[in-house]
Nucleic acid binder design. Structure first.
Lengths: 136, 136
DNA sequence: CTTCATGCAAATAATTTGCAGTAAG
DNA sequence: CTTACTGCAAATTATTTGCATGAAG
């Protein structure tokens, strides 16, 4: 329920925000221009500036997150529990994968070796998805 | 020896390329405008367009790599063996850390669970470096 | 010599800002 | 009512391109 989330963060509930969040949810990982193009159909007056402003305020409020890694354009996703991104080099698809103990081990190992106080891990695995492997 | 690397990749050895590579090496992880600003001092005629063009050709040739993760602007580094980035949220410093078996385990686990054919892992640990922890 | 790289200016794309009008609480 | 949000246009910043000249192999 996006209304509830926005209210908790003291952001006003506007049709624009709801539309943006719905779009992000629908695609999982989506770029700014995809949001814009998709929303324009149902909501032709929606302005790009509004999308930019809302993405930054909602990012600040930890409702949405940036997704970026080498060689890919920036996308957005709804904030969720920490997870790994699986990225297909062929079709560009991005999947989420739940984190298990091996990530905690890795964080602990890094913290120990480096003396960094590690808050979070940003992990992407880049490869070929099962569907694209099938296509020869 | 950057000359050797460029030659291997059939890229001409120019003072501009050498300057860019030297700058990246010096800083480890550096943004485009930092490269530009730093080089301008010794080489005032160096143009931004040249930096852009060279970064893409050298990225294509796998001499340099993009470094990006959430909430940080894009940087470049020299291509090296796979490694983890340790990022300090306070001072912005980025350190490299060698990869050990736990990363291989993680990759194997992800591959198995997802059926992706995983080629590489992009991993960043975000936290506070020892120096910034010391500052209260 | 031949090919590729440079630097400049112009073109394009991406993001941010200011502000008047409007909608949400 | 008050505050925050929207949409527009303009401003700023980032990136790309075309082309004439110059340097590298």
């Amino acid at each position: 329920m996006f209304e509830k989330i926005l209210k908790e963060k003291h952001l006003k509930i506007t049709p624009q925000r709801l539309a943006i969040l719905k779009e992000i949810q629908k695609f999982g990982h989506i770029s700014i221009d995809e949001i814009y193009e998709n929303i324009k159909e149902s909501n032709p007056s929606m302005s790009l500036a509004t999308i930019y402003k809302n993405l930054s305020s909602m990012q600040e409020a930890k409702i949405v997150d940036e997704v970026k890694f080498p060689n890919h354009k920036q996308r957005y996703e709804l904030t969720k529990n920490p997870h790994i991104h699986l990225v297909c080099e062929k079709c560009g698809k991005i999947m989420d994968m739940e984190i298990d103990a091996s990530v905690e081990n890795l964080k602990a190992m890094c913290a120990k070796t480096s003396s960094y106080d590690i808050k979070e891990a940003s992990i992407a695995m880049i490869g070929i998805c099962p569907q694209c492997q099938a296509v020869v």
